[in-house]
Design a protein around this nucleic acid. Structure first.
Lengths: 247, 247
DNA sequence: TCAAAAGTGTTCTCTCTACACCCATGT
DNA sequence: ACATGGGTGTAGAGAGAACACTTTTGA
């Protein structure tokens, strides 16, 4: 039974005033994307996938649970990157819009209505970013999501609270670590060409990389193994496929 | 009136289950130090300076308040660096030792005893690190501190919970940023010699830096202004003093 | 005049970049 | 054959490390 289908636990099961917000990065066609749900509330409300931490749960486990619920995949690469704790961080404005929802609306909305006082208060949020293979993700709506879509990170909708800010921080963190920690392969299928990897780097850093020098740099790291050639049918030399060597 | 002398606010004023732990770094005589209080509880308990976040307070402001209370100085360089949120993070063991304290003990202990249920529960803690000029710090004891001392970071006492872990993380973060963000001067007096700065780098990174190359590297950054010479009385050439250029 | 420590210069190496050339593939 | 895109090599620029030399200071 997927997590989203289970009845929601009572509010007492969660740490009060502490939440998790996830920036789920994906990559396709030369662009970096983020997965952003749109809420069912009256008006246009977008919000990062998020959730709360159970009393007996590590914060990393909570982030993982939230991510797996939303993407349907396990073993996701994720890292905390910053805490957002301004005193005025609150969902009050959003929760007030609950009134506009019909009383027989989605069950999740019922849960929120029942816990409105709690949810409308101040929350400190831990930001996590995740890297996923977009092809493997089956975006899952919760009961209060109208839709869940991938948006290019350069064309994100205006989100609630400081969520656009959170994505900006996540992206800077990704830029800082993509090369240093060699985590880029998490955004690609298992097998990929050097061009795929280069275009990914160009999307993340928003700048070009010289084709030949990029290839040399990456190969000198000795973290890729060269596989068979990939015949695309194009009238040109076939590129090799590569795979990340797990250690 | 110093903060530590005011009556402690009631527990309801604070965010529940969320705390701040500070790693206060100082530097002297070629060694990196951290400021660590020893608690009044029966037995040997050391714990990082920490505290809680008030309902109407930014988390950064809370960290700053805690730091200023403990060091007596303002305008401290500080950064959050990681959240520690293991499910089993709790002070239960420590709080139980309250029983060993006399009922007419320190007032702070009385406050803890009154809030023991809250304090013995699970806490997620935001780690902050601070850089201070040791010469300017007047370590201030709270009512439950037996003493507050500087310890070389390589010779820290065993601390409660995961606090030794927290310092290790803080130090790695400091190593990552000292050079990149040029924050080293925060650990030195306003005027310092190139040797002072080099020894600081060697203490933080725990490795030697070539004297001449270090000087060239730092000067090429154009962030220092050269001041008068410093005559130490030694029978050798007098070094220049430098000052960081504020922008 | 000498030792100690500071300031400065030179060379060598390694990495990153730009340019160039060759190779495989399908039309 | 040829255009297209992939793989590889090489020379130049820049950063960092190692070594050497000069200058200043007080005994």
């Amino acid at each position: 039974m997927p997590d989203s289908a289970r009845p929601l636990p009572p509010a007492e099961d969660y740490l009060r005033q502490l939440s998790i917000d996830c920036v789920i990065f994906g990559y396709r066609d030369g662009k970096l994307f983020a997965l952003v749900p749109k809420l069912v509330f009256e008006g246009d409300f977008w919000a990062l996938p998020g959730g709360f931490i159970r009393q007996e749960e590590d914060i990393d486990a909570a982030a993982r649970r939230i991510l797996e619920t939303r993407t349907g995949i396990t073993n996701i690469y994720l890292e905390q990157f910053r805490v957002f704790g301004a005193a005025e961080r609150t969902n009050r404005y959003l929760i007030e819009h609950l009134a506009a929802l019909p009383a027989d609306g989605p069950k999740g909305a019922e849960w929120i209505r029942a816990n409105a006082d709690w949810l409308a208060g101040r929350f400190v949020s831990i930001g996590y970013y995740a890297l996923v293979d977009m092809r493997k993700v089956m975006p899952a709506r919760t009961e209060i999501d109208a839709s869940v879509d991938w948006y290019p990170v350069n064309e994100l909708p205006p989100m609630i609270m400081d969520h656009n800010d959170i994505v900006a921080h996540a992206r800077r963190t990704l830029q800082r670590y993509l090369d240093e920690k060699l985590i880029g392969y998490n955004l690609l299928p298992e097998k990929f060409t050097m061009k795929d990897l280069r275009y990914l780097y160009e999307a993340v850093y928003d700048r070009p990389f010289a084709r030949n020098n990029f290839q040399k740099k990456i190969l000198d790291l000795n973290v890729l193994e060269r596989l068979e050639k990939k015949y695309s049918g194009g009238s040109h030399r076939a590129p090799y496929l590569y795979r990340f060597i797990r250690r």
